[in-house]
Design a protein around this nucleic acid. Structure first.
Lengths: 121, 121
DNA sequence: GCTATATTCAACTATATGGTTGAATTATAG
DNA sequence: CTATAATTCAACCATATAGTTGAATATAGC
């Protein structure tokens, strides 16, 4: 079972799809317009668009025979949040480590003042 | 040919791998430790770790027969930057749209003052 | 040396992706 | 009505992922 985040990140993991999103962030476009820059069949691009729709990163508006695609940035929120959480956890851990090292230093200094053994470093 | 960003996002697109990273952001762990919470074979987890290594999200330190894995947040920078760029482009576009609408409003108001036709809205 | 532990390697299976081509669908334009 | 344009559908192929099991490798502990 695929979560929304799985779908979002899977959709973003392909360079063609990222290029499509980039193009759409400056406005609506038709399937044919989106396919034009790529050295692949229209059908291939149509499939990429379907994956972007599965991830809700793209929405479709039909006008006669033309389908207008637009960018929906909402799913990016969850992806960005996940990444930021990891970075935060990481730096939090580093901060804890540093605090521990400093506490150790202070303890060593105290011991030294009390006439303990020589500190290395 | 897969770019670094492709590898990063592909690695992040799987829930097992995200859980592994989450675990590692609180410190080093061995392969067996990482595998323990999952209802899958050790081998399967070993493969996931290889994908995380391919994306450079994880580093390996061998100590005898044990392999200690650690989290490397660097590749997340590019991923976060890409996402933020899209959000920025999107809001930039909305701002431009809004500015255009306001300019239109001002023009309409001026026209009204000069005795033009009724504004529809 | 022998045995248990930690891990990868190899081979295999099933499903998902990423692409192709050709036909079907639907709407616009003469 | 007919030709053309914009799309999708369907079938197919190659490769990548996600998992399995069983064997190989290397190290640790006795």
């Amino acid at each position: 079972m695929q979560s929304a985040l799985d779908h979002t990140l899977t959709a973003l993991a392909d360079p063609t799809r990222r290029a499509i999103l980039q193009r759409l962030s400056s406005g609506e476009a038709r399937v044919t317009d989106l396919a034009e820059p790529f050295a692949m069949s229209l059908n291939a691009v149509s499939k990429h668009i379907r994956m972007l729709e599965r991830a809700r990163l793209v929405q479709r508006r039909r006008m006669g025979r033309e389908h207008f695609l637009s960018f929906n940035p909402k799913p990016l929120d969850e992806a960005a949040a996940w990444i930021e959480t990891q970075r935060a956890l990481w730096t939090a851990r580093l901060d804890t480590l540093e605090a521990l090292l400093q506490a150790e230093d202070r303890a060593a200094a105290t011991a030294r003042r009390k006439g303990g053994s020589r500190r290395k470093r």
